[in-house]
Design a protein around this nucleic acid. Structure first.
Length: 563
RNA sequence: UGGGGAGUCGUCUAAUGGUAGGACAGCGGACUCUGGAUCCGUAAGUGAAGGUUCAACUCCUUCCUCCCCAGCCA
């Protein structure tokens, strides 16, 4: 069976869920969650994780929650909450009224912690952070118990209450689970449950000064919300015994944690550690720079939610950490854009073409197809006249092998217009640069077909000089030159692998007049060159386009081979 | 050198003891008013060695490689 392109994805998680439904494990329910920490922007890796959790719930007729895992006020901000909501909503998910905040459960978590203390399963530790680290041991040596580990329960209760009351400064003490300092799993060596942080929290303000750690909080959040399958990435596998331990000790509802492999993409990095300096040093224009792997960047670039969904569905789920080829993402993008993007003609690097035998002041309105993949998209009129612009690349005075565009003496088609034959060029006397191409046209070929049935080798796009709109095009390429920018050679830095050509700005493009009212976010295929979308920087005076992705370019491939 | 994971064409992913298949990328071709799209063809893989079996990607043993864990981050 072809699982890759199937409309019904299948993977080990879906197998488990299917089995759980069959055995009535959670009363037949499926309820998942996506738990972002609001400390940064979402990227394409998150989109995949969201697709896994939300998609599975959706497929099995279950529910999914959006929950902010906001347990560290020193890193979290409201602006991230807002941006994350916007991004996930843009992706097309609708969590209904199930928007939750872990911080709304702090009171309940506190009560649970008290229960654990009363069971003798948690204690307040006065050791400093450094001391705790020393006492924890190493990967090969067991840890040793803190001198405060056997504090009487009453004392722990009192101390914990006073921690909450704000009697102690940051870092003075913590609440720890009392498990096993000799466990080969470092996570089980009396993990910290609460630390003191006198900080303002974006959601709870100054209400709390003790904040729960991830391991303590996460299972409780899942339990409180009645999550059935708590899906997360592989690095949390070591934490599952702890997840289970807390829930079992408390004797409360126990969701099942399942881990999947992490996803990365070639030629990009997802890590904030790398991305942040790019933003801060101005190497990119912001978190929404169209070269960024952030969802806001991809949105500005012209990626569609549908393309991202195709990518998620088609790239599979497994327990292996994988690196997906950027070309595959782009393939999914083109697949979506090809079917939906209206075609227009736009010339990126204009070269004047003059039709010597065309009447001086004549203008014809020619019919052009809006989208050959979608007959319902109809046609439009495009003005044609004596002076046109064509692409510089579409003319060669001396053609290289296999070049079959315009060259002296050759006849080509101007798309939807006429067959024209090159009869000469005009060069700048000083530089020798070609500044004009002269052609003659065959009036009998109006619309682009010759009555005698003769064929031409190529069809060029064009715009009428007098009617064209000026536009700026921002051409994007991969941000890094290496498949894995983090795989740095000795003495090198990921910054050495930044692609110097990741952005090229063309300021004097010419596009057909039908684009006059194009609004920000609109997507087009510039025939023969690529998919473009209107950037928010666009204005009535100047259209600004982002190149989303090029068309597959066989000629570029041939040229590459010839070198 | 403690613990936990993962190894199938270059990449992603199927085959759950019975012909190692698909997708992307590559290569070649057909078609075309986008060198687009579409279609066809082609090369390429089970980390290694043993063992069990009529039969092993699948089960067993040993080994190798890669990833994660020593935050009062998530």
């Amino acid at each position: 069976m072809d699982a890759t392109n199937s409309n019904r994805p299948d993977d080990f998680i879906r197998d488990i869920v299917r089995q759980d439904i069959k055995t009535n494990k959670f009363g037949g329910r499926v309820h998942t969650r996506f738990p972002p920490e609001p400390n940064g922007y979402l990227h394409i890796g998150h989109a995949k994780a969201i697709w896994i959790s939300f998609g599975i719930a959706e497929e099995f007729g279950g529910l999914y929650n959006l929950r902010f895992d906001d347990t560290d006020p020193t890193k979290e901000e409201q602006k991230y909450v807002d941006a994350i909501i916007q991004d996930i909503y843009w992706l097309g998910w609708d969590w209904g009224d199930r928007l939750y905040f872990a911080s709304d459960y702090f009171e309940q978590m506190y009560e649970y912690a008290v229960q654990l203390i009363k069971k003798g399963k948690a204690y307040v530790d006065d050791l400093s952070a450094d001391e705790i680290r020393e006492y924890r041991g190493t990967l090969t040596e067991p840890g040793k118990p803190s001198p405060y580990r056997d504090r009487p329960i009453e004392e722990n209760l009192d101390l914990f209450k006073r921690m909450k009351a704000g009697e102690f400064p940051d870092g003075s003490c913590v609440l720890r689970a009392r498990i096993d300092m000799a466990s080969p799993n470092m996570n089980m060596r009396d993990p910290v449950m609460y630390r003191i942080l006198h900080a303002t929290h974006p959601h709870t303000g100054a209400k709390w000064c003790i904040y729960p750690m991830y391991d303590w909080a996460h299972g409780l959040e899942d339990s409180i919300e009645g999550i059935t399958h708590s899906l997360c990435s592989l690095e949390f596998e070591d934490h599952r015994p702890l997840y289970d331990w807390f829930l079992d000790e408390l004797g409360i509802y126990h969701p099942q944690q399942i881990e999947f492999g992490r996803y990365s993409l070639t030629y990009t990095v997802m890590s904030k550690r790398i991305l942040r300096p790019l933003v801060e040093t101005g190497i990119v224009s912001g978190w929404d720079d169209p070269r960024m792997p952030t969802l806001s960047g991809m949105r500005r670039r012209g990626y569609t939610p549908e393309a991202i969904r195709i990518y998620c569905e088609s790239s599979g789920v497994s327990r292996a950490n994988t690196t997906i080829d950027l070309a595959f993402l782009e393939h999914c993008l083109r697949e979506d854009l090809n079917s939906r993007a209206p075609r227009i003609m736009g010339v990126l690097r204009p070269l004047r073409l003059i039709i010597d035998n065309y009447p001086e002041n004549q203008v014809e309105e020619l019919d052009a197809v809006n989208n050959p993949e979608d007959p319902g998209a109809g046609t439009r009129k495009v003005p044609f006249s004596k002076v046109l612009y064509i692409e510089q690349d579409d003319f060669r005075e001396v053609p290289p092998p296999k070049y079959y565009r315009l060259t002296p003496g050759r006849e080509v088609r101007l798309r939807y217009a006429y067959l024209v034959t090159c009869v000469g060029v005009k060069k700048d006397e000083k530089t020798g640069e070609i500044i004009e191409v002269h052609c003659t046209y065959d009036p009998a070929t109006r619309g682009g077909d010759a009555p005698d049935g003769r064929k031409v080798q190529s069809t060029l796009h064009w715009v009428s000089a007098a009617h064209a709109l000026e536009a700026e095009a921002r051409l994007y390429d991969k941000l890094f030159t290496r498949e894995n920018p983090l795989d740095v050679e000795a003495g090198a830095d990921y910054k050495d692998y930044l692609n110097p050509d990741s952005l090229e700005i063309l300021k004097s493009c010419r596009v057909e007049p039908s684009l006059a009212k194009a609004s920000a976010g609109s997507l087009y295929q510039f025939e023969r060159t690529g998919y473009f979308c209107v950037d928010p920087d666009t204005s009535p005076e100047k259209l600004v386009f982002n190149r989303t992705v090029t068309l597959r370019d066989t000629w570029a491939k041939i040229q590459k081979q010839q070198k």
